[in-house]
């Protein structure tokens, strides 16, 4: 197993853990952290799989950099919304019914 594949598998594992947390956790901040975990996992996969042994490839680096920017923006927006939501409602979770936790139910 080459180191780059190791990165990729670690990334996949991180994605799995993140996905589990994203669906399972109810606290909004935890959900957000889980999302960031998925993000990091994805970036690891991106960097790891792309090393084909012909030396460093510039493209994935650029991609990951962009990806990080995007995910920071998303996280920032989410934090703003969560904070305002908490101020207005006093809740830290969406009061979705227990039957579906990931995407929320029809109202």
């Amino acid at each position: 197993m080459t180191p780059s594949l190791l990165y990729a598998f670690a990334g996949a594992g991180l994605c799995g853990i993140g996905m589990f947390g994203f669906i399972q956790l109810r606290h909004l901040l935890r959900k957000l952290l889980a999302f960031n975990l998925i993000g990091s996992g994805t970036f690891l996969v991106l960097v790891g799989l792309a090393q084909h042994g012909q030396g460093p490839d510039a493209v994935p680096q650029a991609l990951v950099l962009t990806g990080i920017v995007v995910s920071i923006a998303a996280t920032a927006l989410a934090i703003v919304l969560i904070r305002r939501y908490f101020h207005l409602s006093g809740h830290t979770s969406l009061e979705a019914d227990d039957s579906d936790s990931g995407q929320g139910g029809a109202e």
């Binding site: 994203f22 998303a74 919304l81 939501y85």
Partner: peptide, 16 residues
């Protein structure tokens, strides 16, 4: 806000 958070979470999961 609740609707938009729900939307955000779905959108983020989808993009990931």
């Amino acid at each position: 806000l609740r609707a938009s958070l729900r939307y955000l979470l779905a959108a983020l999961l989808g993009s990931m």
